[in-house]
Amino acid sequence: MLTQTTTRVLEPSDLPAALAVLHRDPVANAFVTSRVQVAGLDPWRLGGEMWGWYEDGMLASLCYAGANLVPLCATPRAIRGFADRARRAGRRCSSIVGPAESTALLWRLLEPNWGPAREVREHQPLMVTDRLSDTVAPDPYVRRVRKDEMETIMPACVAMFTEEVGVSPLAGDGGLLYQARVAELVGSGRSFARLDRHGKVLFKAEIGAATTQACQIQGVWVAPEYRGRGYAAPGMAAVLRYALADIAPVASLYVNDYNTAARATYRKVGFQEVGAFMSVLF
């Protein structure tokens, strides 16, 4: 019988132990690790709580509980503990996302209380590479987005998000949080785009998470009128070149399994499937 003392909300003093857990899987944990390295474990700065699961007095598993609920290096016993805490707290997140096996178990335990979900994406291949392609040359026109180009990049970001997630990021707070996130990526030099001759975004992508060990590419998008014309692979090769040269020795991404065109593009650029994520969208 699990007890409430098995899990607890971590405190700033738990940071070294939490980072030790996160570093066990630097690729899969990159999103949360990047936030923790910047904000620590203070819930206000982190944007959510970090729950810890202890076995024999040692921190063994984690679960980030913010806008997303994310199990990290979580064993089945830890997942049950996290599910119990999540049920008691009530749903505050817009999605559950993480490694497919642990996320699937967490959702099975929470669905009776939190369901139904708006959409469940059970298998999203996790793809990784540590080198540039020998066959795809980077698009020389893909570059970092400048800080004075927010009005140029935002419509493309909104279009990508709406197409990918199924709801607009401008809903709710009018898009303030989303615009702040886009501005953060632009300001840190992790937003990339190619513009057409009219100054409209043709291709774009971001390095959404970055640690010293791995980074995660996200938001890959080609304007509808330019799709099927060979811009995606060279664009991705260009972003990958920036990622490996300036950010981290390993680049990753995860993609919907039904997006066969995107998966083929990523394989062409050199990414290989090493696992799978799962997302539950509310």
Rank of each mutant, 00 (worst) to 15 (best):
G98I: 02
I153H: 03
I247V: 15
E119W: 01
S95A: 15
W53E: 07
V9W: 03
Q4W: 12
D246V: 05
A264T: 08
W221C: 05
F277G: 00
Y266F: 04
D134K: 14
A28Y: 03
A210P: 05
N113Y: 04
P169R: 08
M58V: 13
G174Y: 04
W44A: 15
A117C: 14
E225S: 10
Y266D: 10
D134H: 12
P249E: 01
A86R: 03
C73N: 14
N113G: 14
A117M: 13
V27H: 01
P155R: 08
G57Q: 07
P224S: 10
K204P: 01
S94W: 14
H23A: 13
A248M: 00
R227W: 10
A264R: 14
P249F: 04
G90K: 04
S168L: 06
L244S: 09
M236P: 00
L105G: 03
M127F: 00
E273V: 15
V269S: 02
P234M: 07
A83S: 12
A245L: 15
R146M: 12
V9F: 11
L109A: 08
A223T: 11
I247L: 10
S279M: 12
G66L: 07
R144Q: 05
F31A: 00
E149V: 01
G189I: 04
L109F: 08
G270I: 11
Q124F: 08
